[in-house]
Design a protein around this nucleic acid. Structure first.
Lengths: 217, 217
DNA sequence: TTGGGAGTACCTATTAAGTGGTAATTAGTA
DNA sequence: TACTAATTACCACTTAATAGGTACTCCCAA
């Protein structure tokens, strides 16, 4: 092995998990954690500035989620290897991550030894996927009927936000109050989101969305 | 402080998180992790045998989840303090955990220092809750809307039938056509079922029902 | 045999939701 | 710079949904 130390950046909104991960990485002399971030917003400028060899990125973060962060980083010209580390083995997440330029997709509940092994393999330029993921990916690719994520992605942030309120059963008036905008504006967003999703009422939207969320578990 | 070392057991199916947590607890001399488990099934006999001072229990585990594990442990006579550590701040989870004998409910994304502080406080016999949780708990208790199958059973056959159409996103008019009755009659049933379930709109009903169905899995 | 729940239907009144426009602002892009 | 997408707001209009009644039929149990 060379004496070059690989620089690694951790992005995860769980401090505990960062701790565990850091400890794991510390087992290898050639791995060096040079930065940590607890959110996408925080991570992006850091990534641009430091351009580490590897970025380990959590998928499920509050605020900007992992996929959005990944996209933004690639947009900003970050060329680091980026590996997603997550609890979710949902089809769309995997597919989304890979197709948006992730170099790997690992599960948090993997055996730590294995995880470390794969992180090192990733640094050699290989695409790394957790066991379970390989299977998921294969079946996901076999049926390209993944209209779900595609259609969800066609929504703007605001529309998506409002959809999730609808999926909680809120009325336009209540949503308006939550977001401090007029209920007329909420109606506009609802109108647009219904059109984009090809649905005929907020009830259909609520049902669709709740099923969507349930499927992710 | 006394010289007695508190015995702690960790139950979480994420090895990484266990690592982080162990490292955190190692900062305090009087805390000693005497056992780890990666599942409820594994944890229960261990808890019975070791009867540690504190059990830190993950809520979202594969197989037997945290609540089930908690219940079973209490059933088996485990008297350890049990603190839930989780990412979920869902009302029901919190209420469920507390009412099933948990002595605390902490969030994984809390600041580690704070977490350690609260774990120590828990060992002195105090109920510990993360900041965010206090709020959730308060609002959850304010509305004792713990409706489940009991309230589903209070519906007549027709009402139930119509509820499931609502849960598919159908309008009153379409439901009427399906059942070959007038849409005015459908409205009557909807009116009754909303009242019985204590819901404010068909959207709430749809969301509730779909979640109900999803939970059955 | 009478009372009540369930299911049906209709009526009125009010509120919520959805549609189709116009338009201003801002941020980002060609 | 001109263009575009996103977000916001307002207006007018139509349809859907909800709440409160009355009322008739059927069936089952007291």
């Amino acid at each position: 092995m060379s004496e070059y130390k690989s620089s690694i950046m951790l992005v995860d909104d769980h401090p505990l998990l960062r701790k565990g991960l850091k400890q794991l990485l510390a087992l290898e002399d050639e791995l060096q954690v040079i930065a940590e971030a607890s959110s996408g917003a925080e991570a992006i400028p850091l990534a641009v500035e430091l351009d580490p060899d590897l970025i380990i990125l959590d998928l499920n973060m509050q605020g900007m989620d992992g996929i959005a962060t990944l996209k933004k980083m690639r947009d900003e010209g970050v060329t680091s290897r980026i590996v997603m580390l997550t609890v979710s083995d949902a089809d769309e997440d995997v597919v989304n991550a890979i197709s948006n330029g992730a170099d790997g997709y690992l599960l948090k509940d993997s055996d730590p030894e294995l995880l470390l092994e794969q992180i090192k393999r990733s640094l050699t330029g290989k695409m790394v996927l957790s066991e379970e993921i390989t299977q998921v990916l294969a079946t996901a690719l076999r049926r390209p009927a993944v209209k779900t994520s595609a259609e969800l992605n066609s929504l703007t942030n605001r529309e998506h936000e409002i959809l999730s309120f609808i999926a909680k059963g809120l009325s336009n008036k209540l949503i308006a109050r939550e977001l401090t905008i007029s209920d007329g504006t909420v109606k506009v967003h609802v109108k647009h989101l219904l059109k984009k999703l090809g649905l005929r009422s907020r009830v259909e939207a609520a049902v669709w969305m709740v099923n969507q969320q349930a499927a992710k578990t």
